[in-house]
Write a protein that binds this DNA or RNA. Structure first.
Lengths: 209, 209
DNA sequence: GTCTATACTGAGATAGAC
DNA sequence: GTCTATCTCAGTATAGAC
């Protein structure tokens, strides 16, 4: 990777996190990075692919850590299902504990889930994650697969929304702690409570087929 | 309100919901609505204010319904706190049951929470809602105010994220029901479980002050 | 009061010189 | 590999027709 590429990626990460993807112009990035406008298109092809590279660079390690934690807990559990709160920890700890170390990353992630860019761009980066965690939760919880998938969406929504809003301390009125450890604890308790709620049947799973 | 205004609002609602705010150009809107470009700026001032009008027009009735339901439940409960699941119903039912009747609205709401436009634009439209529901939950749950506010953010995140993703049936693999009643039931169960989870202390509430 | 035509600025993208 | 020049299209602003 050339020095130009690195400078572009670093600057883009910071600016996308700070102002959002749509609001950040390529011209702003090149000015701050001290490179030429065409360099972005030469190295990345387009603004969208630049974002894609960024997601890969940042989300890659997070997802590897998630899978490693899940592997560890599954080995620990042997033939038994991994307890829900351990699966949740494997899922939530890697992203949330990065809040303190690199707020830029957290903001970027929040923005991405946010600006609706996840469906188009990041689905591929997170596909393995979804499969693995759905399976793990499926063994631990007495829920049908569609119901579980829906609840996992709730968890992801809560996480994404929170990363974005909490970091901006846009919470109404008071100052909320942006301490990643506190957020993790709260979100884990909340998500565990939600996931373990009684099944709501949801019998309409194409049984006619 | 002139006919032109109405056509612009209707078309914008549809296109913003379908493609997102940023991705929808004013020229696309005017082409579909059959009006002139400058008409938008004459009637609304800017693209952003057009969105603001849209939010007001659509979210207004939802929020009135929420407050009316909450009023009803509070009158019913008298001096007692309203049960958590009733507060949740007042909060979630009005938006979620609109999914079936007008998917455009649901998509728009999802997109808004999504594209990060809520902080800037809609905070004002939802301020009263937050105050009232925080107070109601505060009476029903043994949580400190910051902890409660955080958990309510989780609920909002789950709702927003779900409205967006479920409507696009972007869920991994299988088809998920977009039936608002089913979603409502699931989300209520999940949120109730999460809100009623044991308090995680979170004692660092500026006690030094 | 409403709407149209048109021009202005800044965005992302691209071709071709070096 | 890099940069200049340029293209198209976005949101915005204004002058003037009805």
């Amino acid at each position: 990777m050339s020095e130009t590429q690195g400078k572009i990626l670093d600057t883009a990460e910071h600016l996308f996190g700070e102002q959002g993807y749509a609001a950040t112009s390529l011209r702003h990035i090149i000015a701050e990075a001290g490179v030429n406008l065409a360099a972005i298109h030469y190295h990345f092809g387009s603004k969208e692919e630049l974002l894609d590279q960024l997601v890969m660079r940042k989300a890659g390690p997070v997802n590897e850590e998630r899978l490693a934690l899940l592997d560890h807990y599954e080995a620990e559990a042997g033939a038994m299902p991994v307890p829900v709160d351990k699966i949740l920890r494997a899922f939530l700890e890697p992203p949330l504990l990065r809040i303190d170390k690199s707020p830029d990353f957290a903001k970027l992630m929040g923005r991405l889930y946010s600006e609706g860019l996840m469906p188009a761009i990041a689905e591929k980066h997170f596909h393995t994650i979804k499969i693995r965690f759905l399976a793990a939760f499926g063994r631990a919880l007495p829920l049908s697969e569609p119901e579980l998938a829906l609840r996992l969406q709730f968890v992801v929504g809560a996480m994404a929304h929170t990363m974005l809003f909490v970091l901006q301390t846009k919470l109404p009125g008071q100052q909320l702690s942006t301490d990643g450890a506190v957020l993790l604890r709260e979100l884990m308790a909340f998500a565990a409570g939600g996931l373990c709620a009684p099944a709501q049947l949801l019998e309409n799973t194409e049984e006619s087929k």
